[in-house]
């Protein structure tokens, strides 16, 4: 609700606010946009392919016009296409602005606040990654338009402090661009993933039973890390798999890095207790360190005076009024 009102505010009157902010932050060298003289082409068309074509045409015209008439152009909800793993993906940036000098700039409008010119870094990072994909898609189009150049910085527009007034910040997305380019080239083609699955595997939610779906998901190997929990709905499933396998990485990437060749909980504990682990030498530095760690820990816990039971928790008792679900 508030987000919609905000976006509307930013784009009102032919994008006056948006362009003012953009010119202020990224308009160096270009004449300021004059409200009322900004071109806002109509991008409607039938179907995604139609819209993509209409957007490309508008971009071409804007760049052509730019050379001549020093006009700013604002494209609202353009549609772009990008080939991902062999299939086209359709992308819809909030806005793309074409400067009079032919420069194309991605604008992303978000509803998280910028307070005292700073914003939640993880949200900014996510917005940067999203905008970088748009920049990549625009580059594909710009390659076929003379005089066009896509800016490697994007404009991030957010509410200012606690209000709904817009403020903006320039975000350099070159790092996110190079990451996305590499990922796109590496991304396994969907055909290849499908080829490795058992015959008849289906992910169709309508037609499969929960057991069939679980089996289908299980057939695709996963690389779980706790960070997945915040990012992906399948994370709980992958976590369960990792935990059943006793994989050390369920505890986090940092833990995994410390333990060298010992990859399961069982192997680590066995090594720490002085038992031999197949495939790992007894003088392996991690094994030596673990045994020492175990000895030091045991020594410290023993040195606690008698009667100090708090050290090892006994069975707890449920206090009055506590909701069982929360423990």
């Amino acid at each position: 609700m508030r987000g919609n009102a905000f976006e509307a505010r930013v784009k009102a009157d032919g994008g006056t606010e948006l362009l003012r902010l953009l010119h202020e932050r990224m308009g160096a060298g270009a004449r300021p946009p004059v409200p009322g003289e900004v071109l806002v082409p109509d991008l409607t068309a039938a179907g995604p392919e139609g819209r993509v074509a209409r957007t490309a045409l508008a971009l071409r015209e804007a760049t052509g016009a730019a050379g001549g008439s020093a006009a700013w152009t604002l494209l609202v909800h353009p549609l772009l296409a990008l080939e991902v793993a062999g299939s086209p993906a359709y992308l819809e940036p909030d806005a793309v602005v074409v400067r009079p000098d032919g420069r194309w700039i991605v604008v992303e409008i978000k509803s998280f606040p910028m307070i005292d010119s700073s914003a939640d870094p993880s949200k900014v990072g996510a917005a940067a990654r999203q905008a970088a994909v748009y920049v990549l898609a625009l580059e594909r189009v710009a390659a076929r338009v003379t005089g066009a150049a896509v800016d490697h910085s994007v404009l991030l527009v957010c509410p200012r402090d606690f209000s709904n007034l817009p403020t903006a910040s320039v975000v350099d997305v070159r790092k996110q661009l190079s990451v996305t380019r590499r990922q796109l080239t590496r991304l396994t083609r969907i055909d290849d993933i499908a080829a490795s699955l058992p015959e008849g595997t289906s992910f169709d939610l309508e037609r499969c039973s929960p057991a069939e779906l679980t089996a289908a998901v299980d057939a695709v190997s996963a690389a779980y890390a706790p960070e997945c929990l915040a990012a992906c709905e399948l994370a709980f499933h992958c976590r369960g798999q990792a935990r059943s396998a006793g994989a050390v990485e369920a505890l986090g990437r940092g833990v995994r890095g410390e333990l060298g060749g010992l990859t399961t909980v069982g192997a680590v504990l066995a090594a720490a207790r002085g038992e031999s682990t197949p495939g790992v030498a007894d003088d392996d530095p991690t094994v030596v360190a673990l045994r020492r760690a175990a000895a030091l820990r045991a020594e410290a816990l023993e040195s606690v005076p008698e009667g100090l039971e708090a050290v090892s928790r006994g069975p707890g008792s449920v206090p009055e009024g506590a909701v069982a679900g929360c423990r």
Binding site: S118, P121, V124, G125, A128, R174, K175, Q183
Partner: peptide
């Protein structure tokens, strides 16, 4: 290549190159 790219971004900090 497997390094994840979920890095946070601080506004106003000049990106340091090279990556």
């Amino acid at each position: 290549d497997e390094h994840p790219s979920t890095e946070p971004v601080q506004l106003g900090v000049t990106i340091k190159f090279p990556d």
